[in-house]
Design a protein around this nucleic acid. Structure first.
Lengths: 68, 68
DNA sequence: GAAAAATGTAAAGTATACTTGACAACTAAT
DNA sequence: ATTAGTTGTCAAGTATACTTTACATTTTTC
């Protein structure tokens, strides 16, 4: 699935490192999420949604064909 | 984190196998989620929320101390 | 109360989220 | 132009979500 992390992070002038620290993950994890290498865990999705003050459904874009 | 899967599944008279099939996972996965052995992936959380016609935030119980 | 259906447990394997470390490239400041 | 800051890539390792198979226990139904 896609997400709005990079878009929101940039608009709020937050660096990857700052976001990584805020979510207690590494910068690599942020890069991978932003670049679509893999999906966030539910826990990380929740932390990120809290950081950006929105719901998981608002932060992540669930395309309903990605389930087969 | 906890979730309301077992509670909702039972109240709707759905078996573990039926839910597993609906979410395209194995029954083991449902058992493990219901019994708290591990957390759902974000994709599975989304599928389950859709199944029960609610949001991820409504289906899963995020206790805000589980992040350290 | 026997058979069938539903739930649970255990163990080994695969897939993927996440870490760690090192290094390259681009941007911005001095 | 050099330095610092930010972003990206690559590769190898660890942790955990999920599968598969097999079997044991509980619940339901006849």
């Amino acid at each position: 699935m896609k997400n709005r992390i990079q878009e929101l992070r940039k608009s709020q002038k937050v660096t990857q490192q700052e976001l990584a620290d805020a979510l207690s993950v590494t910068r690599q994890t942020i890069i991978s999420l932003e670049n679509g290498r893999y999906n966030a865990s539910l826990t990380l999705a929740h932390k990120a949604a809290q950081f950006f003050k929105m719901t998981i459904e608002e932060l992540f874009i669930f395309e309903d064909d990605e389930n087969l």
